[in-house]
């Protein structure tokens, strides 16, 4: 465990807790893409399969439980909660996320570390995580300006992945045989997807106006 990874995990934890808190307190999910939340639930479900078989550390198990619990409860809130669901803008959140899931699954069948169920699902979850933010970014483009909680959510998610890249660089130089192209490339692609969002996010911080994304 190094500082980059711990900071990355805590930033990731903060992103889901910020989101859960927002939905729970103001009982609204305006501006939040349900599709992205569903994709994240799938990412965690397919990656944390080993939760009950291999024990790595209390920290690891605890964080996996929190991520699984929070992502599924966010999906439940948006789909089922009688008040929250009314604020879900389903005719704006129209990104056909099956166009994301299937290519990731096919890619995982082609590129993986070992051809076993767990390894293929693990690769699938990495590819899916890289693109899971797309429906949310499309929704932000559509709804133009966003309230700053959603902006913070996307910002924290991007920061978590950027910190993980620093973690991989650190581990590459400190641990022998630490070469994992699948993880690195999908993590890099994911971070690049956030790059333009970061640009507009910092722009809006500078002139501290509402975050306006270009059409």
């Amino acid at each position: 465990m190094n500082i980059f990874r711990l900071a990355g995990d805590l930033t990731h934890l903060a992103s889901v807790l910020v989101l859960l808190l927002k939905i729970h307190t103001i009982k609204s999910c305006a501006g939040i893409s349900l599709k992205t939340q569903e994709l994240y639930a799938i990412v965690f479900a397919t990656r944390y399969l080993d939760l009950f078989t291999t024990y790595i550390s209390l920290y690891n198990t605890l964080m996996k439980l929190i991520f699984l619990g929070s992502s599924f409860s966010i999906v439940w809130y948006i789909r089922k909660h009688k008040i929250v669901r009314r604020s879900y803008d389903k005719d704006q959140d129209t990104f056909r996320h099956y166009f994301i899931v299937l290519p990731c699954f096919v890619l995982a069948l082609i590129i993986h570390e070992k051809f076993t169920v767990r390894e293929v699902l693990w690769a699938f979850s990495l590819y899916l995580e890289a693109v899971a933010i797309l429906p949310q970014l499309v929704l932000l483009q559509r709804t133009r300006n966003i309230d700053n909680l959603t902006g913070q959510y996307v910002f924290l998610l991007g920061a978590y992945r950027a910190l993980y890249i620093l973690n991989w660089i650190y581990r590459y130089f400190t641990e022998p045989h630490f070469v994992h192209w699948i993880t690195w490339i999908s993590g890099l692609v994911q971070t690049l997807l956030y790059a333009d969002f970061f640009y507009y996010y910092f722009q809006s911080m500078k002139n501290n106006g509402k975050l306006q994304l270009p059409a």
Binding site: R5, D9, D50, S57, N60, F67, E175, H177
Partner: peptide
């Protein structure tokens, strides 16, 4: 030496 994996990451 055991292959250092990213599987111990979240």
């Amino acid at each position: 030496v055991k292959e250092a994996s990213t599987k111990d990451e979240l």
